[in-house]
């Protein structure tokens, strides 16, 4: 298996690497359940969480993951960073990299931020904690760990994902992973919330939720991301959206007795998911949160492992003209 240098998205991972990270995450679950939640695995490592978008659970999850493995974790959010004072993304990245962290965890509203920075920061492993509507690899690895606990393997299963597919980086990561791991993605959304030509991912597309339910092994509800909807034409009203695309107990019955309910959080009760479903025994939503910490421990460990060979003293790279122009546009 190829060793991991960065984690940008599912697109760059081989099946073997995905399974390795999920299995490694599985073995970290236990540490989080002990009375003394600390292991020395990442002692002496520095992890910087650089968040240009608001996030509570992902940032907290990375922070807990790093701290429970004895790494030093520093959180930087855009509202308090030099970005507000006019510093470019690349300068922020290079400044932080000059402080010699081992891992930089980045969330940004623009797709490809991590790949861009990785070209210029030699000694730092970069983890994508969500880039625009592109990918969110640690969330999907978390989902895969939850599914591993429930099913053993997702191969041959049908996951029905409902909601704002167009703005969902989790959806994109799942569509890519489904092909690599051999499960079927059924996506359900009004046309206004689907990306153009979504069929090319090889998924099944439905506009009627009730038609998609029979034969589903899991129903994955997505939050209606009101902050990303640029206009209010996607659907007529929240109440109407709930009627057509909300998961309630009657719908869940139609999916069969063994169907699991997943949600990446935060939930909007009464919008995409009804309270009785969110709190039912079939809901694995809190398990997903627990597994999120374990997966992030696995990702940090995998990226820090074997770094001794690669780390060399850093120096500022001279930027090509193209990058100088890119800096301007990424501000």
């Amino acid at each position: 298996m190829k060793s991991l240098k960065h984690l940008f998205g599912i697109a760059d991972l081989e099946r073997e690497q995905i399974e390795y990270l999920v299995n490694l995450g599985d073995s970290f679950i236990d540490i989080n359940r002990r009375p003394l939640k600390k292991a020395p695995t990442l002692r002496g490592k520095t992890v910087i969480n650089l968040f240009f978008e608001n996030s509570t659970r992902t940032r907290t999850s990375f922070e807990i993951a790093g701290k429970r493995l004895s790494a030093d974790v520093i959180n930087i959010s855009a509202s308090t960073s030099a970005t507000k004072k006019g510093e470019s993304l690349l300068d922020t990245g290079q400044t932080l990299a000059a402080m010699q962290p081992h891992v930089l965890v980045i969330r940004h509203s623009l797709a490809g931020t991590c790949e861009f920075l990785a070209q210029y920061l030699d000694n730092t492993a970069i983890v994508n904690a969500g880039d625009g509507a592109h990918e969110h690899p640690t969330q999907i690895l978390t989902d895969l760990l939850t599914l591993k606990q429930a099913w053993g393997s997702p191969e041959g299963k049908v996951i029905t994902m409902v909601g704002d597919i167009a703005h969902s980086r989790v959806a994109r990561s799942h569509l890519l992973a489904a092909k690599k791991l051999g499960y079927t993605m059924r996506i359900v959304a009004p046309r206004t919330l689907l990306p153009a030509e979504v069929e090319r991912y090889g998924c099944e597309v439905y506009h009627d939720f009730d038609e998609a339910l029979p034969g589903s092994d899991a129903v994955y509800m997505l939050r209606v991301q009101t902050e990303r909807l640029t206009d209010s034409c996607a659907f007529p009203s929240i109440r109407e959206y709930h009627e057509a695309y909300g998961l309630n107990s009657k719908r869940l019955q139609a999916a069969g007795d063994d169907c699991l309910v997943l949600h990446p959080g935060p939930m909007n009760r009464g919008v995409e998911i009804a309270t009785d479903v969110a709190d039912s025994v079939r809901s694995h939503i809190l398990a997903q949160v627990e597994h999120g910490v374990a997966i992030r421990m696995a990702v940090l460990t995998a990226l820090c492992g074997g770094q001794a060979k690669e780390r060399k003293t850093g120096s500022r790279k001279k930027l090509p003209d193209e990058a100088m122009r890119a800096q301007g546009t990424l501000l």
Partner: peptide, 23 residues
């Protein structure tokens, strides 16, 4: 016990590909 996460050679050899949960 699986002691993979307590080893002192993570930097040089990387994480063990086959970690079993401690119990």
């Amino acid at each position: 016990l699986d002691i993979s996460f307590y080893r002192d050679d993570l930097d040089t050899v990387g994480p063990n590909p086959e970690v079993r949960p401690s119990d």
